[in-house]
Design a protein around this nucleic acid. Structure first.
Lengths: 161, 161
DNA sequence: ATTGATTCAGTTGTGCACAATATACTTCTA
DNA sequence: TAGAAGTATATTGTGCACAACTGAATCAAT
């Protein structure tokens, strides 16, 4: 149940249009636009690695956790097999990973980094720094943004159970 | 040029892994996950209106601005014609909008709301409130989140020119 | 008026994101 | 241990998001 004490919008000035169906008042639209712009900004950097942003995210996890399953990867990235299976096939096609089978459980795919995948990590190391240069926003604000995004994510994700 | 004084990550604790290629340290991943979760949370609400989230956004603009062009709509939604043309055809297919031509300039499409589109606004009015109920996050935090998202968006969007 | 650049919308192709479903394998339980 | 229930991955279909490109209309500036 909800107290319905307030509507789902947020604008800074009280003078502005207070219509809840106005785009300017919607947090979600700002979130959506910022996320799109962010992926767009990554593109030229990741093109040099021949990776998309979701592929880059998958590689980040696999560089840290060798031999995990599709399920575990999906839990970490908050993505399902419908998204990951074709993405992982593309990474396999580029020779960056291998998609083996677990010996203990024939259902699970075990994901391994190839030597080429490993060596790509060197080029990827500079990406966070280059990306940081694109955003003039102070670091403290970015920390705050991350905290708020994580908060909203958990509010929306926990509710599923 | 960039001062490269800091890398593009942000974690709260100093004890944690400070690897810039760690998922836990990336603002962008939090932003990306929160945006995905948000669209997912809208889905059951918008299913009742037979709209997707981007379609809902387009309708929000068209309810407020009758007779605008695809270009103007794209400027407001930060989307291009490659995304909007098929989306608008789907809205037209549902009978919610009409896609006319400008008399002054034969290149531009003029978008109008149909009576059915207009009447859908009534049902849409409750969506922001229902959505607000899904997020326990205090309003003040959401205002802050919106401000930060808008800031990041402009940092990334202005750079294009 | 002619041409050269610009603008608007549309098309094509790729790659997510996800719902719904399928299939194969595993585990639980009677 | 046979069948039921559960789990892991894969498949199919829809709808974005965007890059790259096309074609038509308009504008600029002679």
């Amino acid at each position: 149940m909800c107290t319905t004490e307030s509507i789902f919008y947020s604008n800074m000035t009280t003078e502005k249009d207070s219509n809840p169906l106005s785009l300017d008042n919607q947090v979600c639209f700002s979130l959506y636009s910022a996320a799109n712009a962010m992926v767009r900004a990554y593109r030229p950097l990741l093109n040099k690695l021949d990776l998309t942003y979701p592929q880059y995210l998958a590689m980040l996890v696999l560089w840290q956790h060798e031999g995990i399953s599709v399920k575990t990867l999906g839990d970490k990235l908050h993505l399902d097999s419908g998204t990951l299976t074709p993405l992982l096939k593309r990474l396999e096609g580029k020779g960056l990973i291998s998609r083996g089978r677990s010996e203990k459980d024939e259902r699970v795919r075990v994901l391994h980094i190839t030597p080429e995948g490993k060596s790509l990590r060197e080029s990827a190391m500079e990406v966070p720094e280059l990306m940081r240069c694109k955003v003039g926003t102070p670091t403290q604000s970015l920390v705050q943004l991350k905290t708020l995004c994580d908060e909203v994510y958990h509010e929306l994700a926990v509710e599923k159970s």
